[in-house]
C-alpha cells in the first residue's frame, strides 16, 4: 500500500529501516545482548574481579559463589573473569575476520559480477575450490598448516568465510546490475565507477550487511572449534573454546567449568542471529510494502 502519496515523510530508507528494526522486539533483544558483550570486551579490566591468568591452586574447582560467580577452574582461576576476557578475544577475532572476508570477498564478487565473462569465471571457479570444503574444515586445515595463534586464526577464518560472502555479493550485484535504473544511469552518461559506487553498492549494502552479521555468528563458532581442538587461541589467553576444551576432563564432577563457556558461545551466536534476522526484516524492501 502506498502511504499518503509520499508527501509527508522526509525520511531516508535507512531511517525507515532503523524504525522497523526498533519495532522488532527480538532483534532489539539481540542488540542489547551484543551491547553487553561489547561493553564486557571493552572494559574487561574493570568488570572482571580477577585477572584472567591469576592462579590460586588451593581454590581450584570451587563451585559458583558470591566470590567466584561462575566458580573456578582446575588452576583456581576465576571462570567469570576468564569469560569476560574471552569476550575480547572472540569478538575481536570474529569481527576482524568477517570484516576482512566481506571486503575482500565482496570486492571479488562485485568485480566478477560487474565485468562478467572470463574474469567472472576465473574468480568464481577459484573460489569454488574453497567452497567445496566446509569452512570449518578449511579453517582447521589452514590453522594446522600455519600453526596456532591469533593472527593465523583470523587468517584461517577469513579464508574460510570469503568464498561464501563473495558468492552472496556476486548474486546481489548481478541482480542489481539487471535493474533498469542501471541502464538509465548509463543512458545519462554515467561511467562504470559512478555506477558501481552510487547505484550498485548502496543497493547491495542491505543484503550484504545481513549476511555479514550472520557470518559473525559462525565465525565465533569456528574460533571456538579451532581453539577446542587446540589449533586456535593458545592458553593462557582466555578463549571460550579453549576453556571448554581444558574443562572437558572434569565435566563429570565440575559442570560449571564447561557450562559457562558453552553458554557464552551460545548467547553470542544467538545475539548475532537475532540481529541478522532483524536486519533482514528491516532492510528487505519486498517485505516493506
Amino acid at each position: 500500500m502506498r502511504k499518503g502519496n509520499g508527501e509527508k515523510r522526509k525520511d531516508g530508507l535507512w531511517t525507515d529501516a532503523a524504525k522497523r528494526f526498533r519495532k522488532n522486539k527480538l532483534a532489539m533483544a539481540g542488540l542489547v545482548m551484543l551491547a553487553i558483550l561489547i561493553l564486557c570486551a571493552l572494559f574487561a579490566n574493570y568488570i572482571a574481579p580477577f585477572h584472567y591468568d591469576e592462579q590460586n591452586l588451593p581454590a581450584a574447582f570451587e563451585s559458583p559463589s558470591l566470590r567466584h560467580l561462575m566458580g573456578t577452574d582446575n588452576l583456581g582461576r576465576d571462570i567469570f573473569s576468564r569469560i569476560i576476557y574471552g569476550t575480547r578475544t572472540s569478538l575481536s577475532i570474529a569481527l576482524v575476520a568477517v570484516l576482512v572476508a566481506t571486503l575482500a570477498g565482496g570486492l571479488m564478487g562485485a568485480v566478477a559480477a560487474f565485468y562478467g565473462g572470463v574474469l567472472d569465471n576465473v574468480i568464481m571457479r577459484f573460489l569454488d575450490v574453497f567452497l567445496a570444503i566446509p569452512s570449518t574444515l578449511l579453517a582447521i586445515a589452514i590453522a594446522a598448516v600455519l600453526g596456532p595463534g591469533v593472527t593465523n586464526t583470523v587468517l584461517a577464518i577469513t579464508i574460510g568465510q570469503l568464498p561464501g560472502l563473495a558468492r552472496i555479493v556476486r548474486a546481489t550485484v548481478l541482480s542489481i546490475k539487471g535493474e533498469e535504473y542501471i541502464r538509465a544511469a548509463r543512458s545519462i552518461g554515467a561511467g562504470n565507477m559512478r555506477i558501481i559506487g552510487l547505484h550498485i553498492l548502496p543497493n547491495a549494502m542491505a543484503p550484504i550487511i545481513v549476511q555479514a552479521t550472520l557470518y559473525v555468528a559462525s565465525a565465533i563458532l569456528s574460533i571456538s572449534s579451532l581453539s577446542f581442538i587446540g589449533l586456535g587461541i593458545q592458553p593462557p589467553t582466555p578463549e571460550w573454546g579453549s576453556m571448554l576444551s581444558a574443562g572437558r576432563a572434569y565435566i563429570r564432577d565440575y559442570w560449571f567449568i564447561v557450562a559457562f563457556p558453552g553458554l557464552a558461545i551460545m548467547a553470542t551466536i544467538f545475539a548475532f542471529n537475532l540481529i541478522g534476522d532483524g536486519l533482514r526484516d528491516a532492510l528487505d524492501p519486498r517485505l516493506k510494502n
Partner: peptide
C-alpha cells in the same frame, strides 16, 4: 535521452527525487 517503461525499476530506490534529477548535472 531515454524514458523507460517501468517507472518502478528505472529509478534508483536509494536516491531521492532531487538526487535522481540532478545526477546528469553532477556527471557533466
Amino acid at each position: 535521452q531515454m524514458i523507460f517503461q517501468d517507472p518502478f525499476s528505472s529509478l534508483n530506490p536509494r536516491m531521492s527525487v532531487s538526487e535522481i534529477i540532478s545526477e546528469p548535472f553532477r556527471i557533466y
